[in-house]
Design a protein around this nucleic acid. Structure first.
Lengths: 334, 334
DNA sequence: CTGAAAGCGCTTACAG
DNA sequence: CTGAAAGCGCTTACAG
């Protein structure tokens, strides 16, 4: 079943059918109706490949997700697809491991798939700095702030990591904690972990405390690796009274390491997480967390991308505030 | 940059370039080499749409995921994509809400995208019964067993839900529990919740116990709704000493409801979950669970699909055993 | 082993 | 408002 068959059945030419199908204005109401009927009857669906070949662009937005097991991204994906879908664009999702290059994939997709835009969920600043110029469609990088890279077709929508982390540490300091362990990712390069660590340092400095009491342990962004890092910390003999974990899943891993040693939360160790997903809310004890406004990130990211696609709107850079959710996992030591 | 440009630069004809690009055997080593060089230099990537238009099929497997926030599916997706990718096929992922029709989407994709095969992660038996005949490519339904539907192009790979649930209940019975609350999904129609409930009943029957002591509460497959269902149960004044939750995330919601009322796990209430994801392993207390062999489901699903695609292998129906993981959430009352 | 040519199913100037 | 025709970038018989 092709457009040619529809043309024959309807008595109109192929070109007229094509126009009717695409809702062009210059088609008579009769033709419109007749063609619609036949399409209904036959259940005809135009061949997407042929369509794309001609129009040289797919009605598609690619979503590239960095990190295959990030529950925070997982929560954002469905509403993202929904919102973009309502704008009449299909979505194609690709997952990448942490070590893979999302910008290289984007460049490849631009050539192969020719999407109208690309939405990155997470990403590495280095990749963007090195090769984003190869990507020539409107893009939005969500959850990572990258304002210093001035690409005209790259918007960023992210939480203000530095301020949020500062607030997390302040919360612990306000509750009398003076030695704090921070669990997070790679801080050598610019990125969320680095920004958050800087926020932690600022909190110590502006409280007049020595940064010697700010301990950092690196781990990958998953629960088992946070467990590993936390065990190593506890076994090293170092001490602290509170933990700031840079994601909810890291907090769960750390909590498990404490439980193994009969260390209680929050009596012996306080803990504050980052993200504020459903998990932190329903975990026992309820985890204190800096909640990322996932809904708003989704909303703004989608709107930003769609505005660029349809109206050629210039790139925007949004920094949203995170919100402190108190929970039950922080004890006041005063 | 098109294949025509490569032809000009290399001095070979378009058809020879095409053959070289696709690894056809009848191309001289020189031509092969020369063309490869130019492709390297120019970074040429063939236009996927044109390719598909001609060959009428994409080198793509569609993965349709039912339920946008299922951590169990989330864990399976990455290795699934990897395995299929290694076989030289790309993957396209589509998420569907629980109430949406995955088979209708599959039928649509068959016409639009023309994939080589479709892999369903979760699905509703009713949709398959009603309209799967519209889908004409090899398919595998993972995590739901549907042997009674004899479609020649539909394989199923799932855990033996009935036996697994029976084992879960037996574990609770062995530990002296006699009134058990089961938390799960819709049991009106054939599907995992129904099969598991039947397994629960069997366990009671074969132990000579009255099924009156087997309580069932319906909820959606997410943590907040399990919390809601558990709260309603507790507030209703009904009693039990143990819970079987049909997923890890349901167990977390139920646990939170207990914690709200200062009911301790496992001292006051025992709990056993289903899936056995990372979460159950690192939760405090470690959750007893019937672990689904996610790795094996991934492996078998992918292999089954690829065998059908490449070799026209007939549909297969695999029922894999779940494994009891003891955890710390079940108390022996004897 | 290689090339010229037809054609996949659409869209879109162009002419009427 | 409608139709005939060109062409998007490939693949694949067919002929040599």
């Amino acid at each position: 079943m092709t457009i040619k068959d529809i043309a024959e059945k309807s008595g109109y030419a192929v070109s007229t059918v094509s126009r009717a199908l695409n809702g062009h204005p210059d088609v008579s109401p009769q033709a419109q109706r007749r063609i619609r009927e036949i399409v209904q009857e036959t259940g005809f669906i135009p061949n997407t490949n042929a369509r794309r070949l001609k129009s040289q662009q797919a009605r598609v937005v690619a979503i590239i997700i960095k990190g295959t097991r990030n529950p925070f991204f997982a929560e954002m994906l469905a509403p993202l697809q929904e919102r973009i879908g309502k704008a009449g664009l299909a979505t194609v999702v690709r997952y990448l491991h942490e070590h893979e290059d999302e910008v290289a994939l984007a460049a490849q997709l631009c050539r192969e798939l020719k999407p109208r835009g690309i939405l990155f969920l997470g990403g590495d600043a280095r990749n963007f700095a090195a090769e984003f110029s190869q990507v020539n469609v409107p893009c939005v990088l969500a959850t990572v702030s990258l304002e210093n890279l001035q690409y005209s077709n790259l918007s960023t929508v992210a939480v203000d990591d530095r301020t949020a982390a500062k607030r997390a540490i302040e919360h612990l300091l306000e509750n009398g904690h003076r030695r704090i362990l921070v669990l997070g990712g790679d801080t050598d390069n610019i990125g969320p972990s680095r920004l958050r660590l800087e926020g932690c340092r600022e909190a110590f400095r502006s409280s007049g405390l020595s940064e010697d009491a700010l301990l950092y342990r690196w781990c990958r962004f998953n629960t088992p690796d946070a467990y590993r890092a936390m065990c190593e910390f506890l076994d090293s003999g170092e001490e602290a009274s509170a933990i700031f974990a840079m994601s909810d899943s890291l907090a769960v891993g750390a909590a498990r390491a404490l439980a193994d040693r009969k260390i209680r939360i929050p009596e012996d160790y306080s803990i504050i997480a980052f993200d504020g997903t459903v998990l932190s809310e329903y975990y026992t004890p309820r985890l204190a967390a800096m909640r990322q406004p996932a809904d708003e990130i989704v909303l703004k990211s989608a709107d930003c991308l769609l505005a660029s696609i349809w109206n050629g709107a210039p790139a925007c850079h949004l920094l949203l505030p995170a919100q402190l959710v108190a929970g039950e996992s922080v004890k006041n030591r005063k």
